[in-house]
C-alpha cells in the first residue's frame, strides 16, 4: 500500500510562520486516516526531516511561503514546479524545503508525488496566533489537503 507523509513546516512561535504545522494538526484531526498516512509536525528541523521526505511514495508539505506573485491566497504546487536548491548559507538552520528536495533527488529517493500547499504570511509577530486571513487560508488548505489525500488513497 502507498505510503503517504504529510509534513507541516514552520515555527509556531512566530504567528503565521506556524501555518504549516497548524494545517497538519487540523488535517490530521479532520478524519480517520489509515496507518499508511503519517502526519509530521516538522517545525523548522531542516535536514533532520530528510527521512520523512525519502521514506514515502507521496509527500504533502504545508508551509508559509513567499510566492513569485504575492497574492493572499492558498497556493498549491506540484513536484515539477518546486525549485530544488542547495544554497550557500550562514547557518545549518537555514535549510528548508528546497534543500530537502534537492538532497532527496541526489539520493535518488524522491517520492513519486510531491505537493506543496502554502499561503503567504501576514503577521510574523512573536507569540501571536495565526492572523485572521491566515485562518481562512488554513480552512482552505485543510480542504485542499483532504481532497488530495482521498484522491491519493484510492489510487
Amino acid at each position: 500500500m502507498k505510503k503517504i507523509n504529510v509534513v507541516g513546516l514552520g515555527n509556531i512561535l512566530f504567528g503565521d510562520e506556524g501555518f504549516g504545522v497548524e494545517v497538519v494538526r487540523a488535517l490530521e484531526a479532520s478524519g480517520d486516516w489509515p496507518e499508511t498516512v503519517q502526519f509530521v509536525d516538522g517545525g523548522t528541523q531542516g535536514l533532520y526531516l530528510l527521512d520523512y521526505f525519502e521514506s514515502c511514495d507521496a509527500l504533502m508539505v504545508f508551509d508559509s511561503i513567499i510566492p513569485v506573485e504575492f497574492e493572499p491566497k492558498v497556493y498549491c504546487y506540484r513536484k515539477e514546479e518546486l525549485p530544488a536548491f542547495i544554497h550557500r548559507k550562514m547557518s545549518a538552520h537555514q535549510m528548508g524545503l528546497s534543500e530537502l528536495l534537492a538532497v532527496a533527488r541526489l539520493h535518488g529517493r524522491e517520492p513519486s508525488e510531491i505537493v506543496l500547499i502554502g499561503a503567504p504570511p501576514h503577521d510574523l509577530g512573536l507569540g501571536n496566533p495565526l492572523s485572521e486571513p491566515m485562518l481562512r487560508h488554513l480552512a482552505r488548505a485543510v480542504e485542499t489537503g483532504r481532497e488530495l489525500l482521498e484522491e491519493w488513497l484510492v489510487k
Partner: peptide, 9 residues
Amino acid sequence: ACASHLYDM
C-alpha cells in the same frame, strides 16, 4: 537563522 524559514518560490 533559527526561528523562521519561509519557503521562497
